[in-house]
Amino acid sequence: MDHHAQHGHGSAELNMVSDRRIPSDDPLKFLIVDDHALVRYGLTLALRQRYEDVVIVEAGSLAEAMRKARSEPDLTAILYDLQMGDSDEHSGLTDMLEAAGDVPLIVVSGATDGNVIASCIRAGARGFVNKGCEAAVLDQALAIVLEGGIFAPAPPTPPNGKRVRIALTADAAPVRSESELVGGLTERQREVLCLLLEGRSNKEIARALGVLEGTIKVHLRSVMQRLGVRNRTQLALATIKAGIKLPS
């Protein structure tokens, strides 16, 4: 399966953001690195709207971020601003990646230059999310990155060759049926869903797919948010309405 995901900023599908929070017995833990307090606050709100009891660690400088990356245990992922005030873009990212070790890092930046995005991925970032995107794009990026894939945006390019940003509000997004929503799941999300419907636990699903249990939880949260449900029972019912039969 190709883990590289490309999304335009104007996807109506990605504007369908649910305010429901999905409870978790094992909260995720994120390090948010940005030298603007308001941006850190916004990212914190976005994560807390989606993950109940999520643990947030903040850093307002590269030096502080590197220190916390090395000292904070069990980090799930790092959200990193490319333009930190106490470093330049390239060396700062390199230093941060070294401090992060095996913790996946997603660059969250206002940059739109394809060369900048590519250089971040080549340096070792596992994803790149533009600050102007919808919050649901971050959800998708986290699900893919925590599975071991790479997430990079691909803004739409019209015939004249000039990239444009299509701004759609949540109210402008079309109402989709369960069938349409389930049909839009990624291949791995569908695999997780099928195993869940067989009655397997998160640990059993993770073992079957050869990934971390935390990755399965991220996938399930994304699927539940997509279908607007809060638990496995509601998820099973929504799946039946979508025309997918439960395993016998």
Rank of each mutant, 00 (worst) to 15 (best):
I78N: 03
I78M: 08
D81Q: 01
D81G: 03
Q83H: 15
M84A: 07
M84N: 04
D86V: 06
D88Y: 04
E89V: 15
G92Q: 03
L93F: 11
L93Y: 07
T94R: 13
M96G: 04
M96S: 06
L97S: 02
A100M: 05
V103A: 03
P104R: 00
P104T: 04
P104L: 06
P104G: 06
I106N: 01
V107P: 04
V108R: 00
V108I: 06
V108H: 02
S109H: 00
G110Q: 07
G110K: 05
T112M: 11
T112A: 13
G114A: 11
N115M: 10
N115G: 10
I117F: 09
A118M: 14
A118I: 08
A118F: 10
S119Y: 09
C120I: 01
I121V: 15
I121A: 05
R122Q: 13
A123Y: 02
A123L: 04
G124K: 02
G124P: 08
A125P: 03
A125R: 00
R126H: 07
G127E: 03
V129G: 00
V129Q: 01
V129R: 00
N130V: 15
K131V: 12
C133W: 12
C133G: 13
E134H: 12
E134V: 13
A136G: 14
A136H: 15
A136V: 15
V137T: 15
D139T: 03
D139H: 06
Q140R: 14
Q140C: 12
A143H: 09
A143T: 11
I144M: 10
I144G: 06
I144L: 11
V145C: 01
E147C: 09
G148E: 00
F151I: 02
A152C: 11
A152N: 08
P153H: 08
P155V: 09
P155M: 10
P158D: 05
P158N: 09
P159M: 13
R163K: 12
R163T: 14
I166F: 14
I166K: 13
I166S: 12
L168A: 07
T169P: 11
D171M: 12
A172E: 14
P174C: 04
V175R: 05
R176L: 14
E178M: 14
E180S: 04
L181W: 03
L181I: 10
V182R: 00
G183Y: 02
G183S: 04
G184Y: 04
G184R: 06
G184K: 03
T186C: 13
E187A: 10
R190G: 12
R190C: 11
C194T: 15
L195T: 01
L195F: 08
S201Y: 06
S201F: 11
S201Q: 09
S201P: 14
N202P: 10
E204F: 05
